[in-house]
């Protein structure tokens, strides 16, 4: 059952991602992206990371996709806009880069990292048992990686100030 679920959601993620980039209408593309996000959330849950799966649905499939749709509505993109995508040579370059990335992905999976680099088998299960799904994330995020977490808040402040400065009406 687990194996079937894995292949089902992986296939769904890939197919919907392909549909997302090949559909002409931006709204339809965005909808297929939602399906991709959901499938990835399912993969997280299969991997035992329920919390990240839930966050994936809330943040990506929920909040970010709503923003996407808002922008599409605000820009008032119609159904059949004339495309500015490049011709056959553009597709050739895209295909080339895509092939390169797939080959690279394959190469990376072939390289087995040194044994000492990998966590010993069963570490994750032990941590989950001790701290719970949320605790395992929060102790890392708020203890070991507290400095990066705080820098992120300053980074978001910078983004907010920048967006307001660039978008305010009065010059």
């Amino acid at each position: 059952m687990l194996v079937f679920n894995f292949w089902f959601f992986s296939g769904l993620a890939i197919i919907s991602a392909l549909l997302c980039i090949t559909r002409r209408s931006p709204v339809v593309s965005a909808m297929w992206l939602v399906v991709t996000m959901f499938s990835i959330a399912a993969l997280y849950i299969i991997l035992g990371a329920q919390f990240i799966g839930a966050i994936q649905v809330l943040v990506y499939a929920g909040a970010i996709m709503v923003l996407f749709l808002f922008v599409i509505m605000l820009l008032n993109l119609g159904r059949d806009e004339p495309t500015d995508l490049p011709g056959w040579w553009g597709h050739a370059i895209t295909f080339g880069i895509g092939t390169l990335l797939i080959v690279e992905l394959w190469a990376v999976t072939r390289i087995v990292p040194a044994g000492e680099v990998r966590l010993p088998a069963g570490t994750m299960d032990r941590v989950m048992e001790q701290e719970g799904v949320v605790g395992a994330i929060s102790s890392t995020l708020f203890r070991d990686f507290l400095v990066p977490f705080e820098i992120t808040s300053v980074l978001l402040l910078a983004a907010v100030v920048g967006a307001v400065v660039l978008a305010k009406r009065r010059i």
Binding site: F145, V147, P148, I151, T152, L155, A158, A159, G162, L166
Partner: peptide, 19 residues
């Protein structure tokens, strides 16, 4: 002294400079 801190610093700097 950590790649994550360096990356976030880089992004913070760049974000302000873009604007």
């Amino acid at each position: 002294a950590d790649l994550i801190v360096i990356f976030l610093g880089l992004e913070l700097m760049s974000m302000a400079i873009y604007v």
